[in-house]
């Protein structure tokens, strides 16, 4: 199993957000995690990637057979975990190119490979830019600086394509996207799907799942998964909303 989360409890500033979360992801699978706002979806992404301030009080996160709880965020990243951020941060003064090259070489160093040759790197940049239809000039700018909402999200997928992770977590990648951008993003993701990697797609709406078709759909509520099913579950949610879930579990 690629990722196996068992009975995970996570607190922020002493307040428990995840309350016994379980999830198993195999290679080649796409899992969608849905649920109303404030149920802990983004906390899950933060906990898997090792963000500071998210305290795991109970349970474990097993990734490729290893418990990753004590790993630094960069180590987890180099192990193949990628997060497409809901709100990508702007980093003035650091060019996209420089940033990407640094990231790729960090990964290669981790794998005990020599740095990527400049030519190869540039070729790869060009190739992946086309995949997400990202404007060439964006990569000459500072990381996310002055990017529109849609450009930022495309940039996340572009980086994913460059880094080629084994486990990709997409945190609300569809929020703030118009339909055309959404299609582009989905196209990028689909192109990267393979039998070797797994995806966790966190989303509030079913819309994205029309384009990135999941193998499993989980509904999260109050810090844990309360319902799982196939892609049909997403459609059911779209139709009925989240209220029936709330009613069912609120006592």
């Amino acid at each position: 199993m690629l990722l196996n989360i068992k009975n995970l409890h996570v607190s922020i500033n002493g307040k428990e957000i995840l309350k016994g979360f379980n999830l198993g992801v195999n290679k080649g699978e796409v899992h969608a995690i849905m649920g109303p706002n404030g149920t802990g979806k983004s906390t899950l992404a933060a906990a898997i990637t090792g963000r500071e301030g998210y305290e795991i009080t109970k349970g474990e996160i097993i990734y490729k057979g290893k418990d990753i709880r004590d790993m630094a965020p960069d180590e987890r990243a180099n192990e193949g975990i990628f997060l497409s951020f809901q709100y990508p941060v702007e980093i003035p003064g650091v060019s996209m190119t420089n940033f990407m090259r640094t990231a790729l070489n960090a990964q290669r160093e981790y794998q005990k490979l020599p740095p990527i040759p400049a030519g190869e790197f540039l070729k790869k940049m060009e190739e992946k830019k086309q995949l997400v239809e990202i404007h060439a000039k964006l990569t000459n700018r500072s990381v996310n600086e002055g990017f529109s909402g849609g450009e930022k999200k495309k940039n996340e997928i572009f980086q994913m394509a460059m880094i080629e992770p084994q486990l990709a977590i997409l945190d609300e990648t569809d929020s703030g996207l118009d339909i055309d951008a959404l299609k582009v993003v989905a196209k990028g993701v689909n192109a990267l799907r393979s039998s070797e990697n797994g995806f966790v797609v966190i989303t509030h709406y079913q819309r994205l799942l029309d384009y990135i078709v999941p193998d499993f759909v989980h509904v999260m509520y109050d810090g844990r998964i309360v319902k799982s099913g196939g892609k049909g579950l997403a459609l059911e949610l779209e139709e009925k909303g989240y209220d029936w879930i709330k009613k069912e579990f609120e006592i």
Partner: peptide, 18 residues
């Protein structure tokens, strides 16, 4: 910026390099 540091680390860049 701590946010930027985390973002970079999530891309595999060590804290020191970030």
């Amino acid at each position: 910026d701590e946010e930027a540091l985390f973002y970079m680390m999530q891309r595999g860049i060590s804290r020191q390099d970030a």
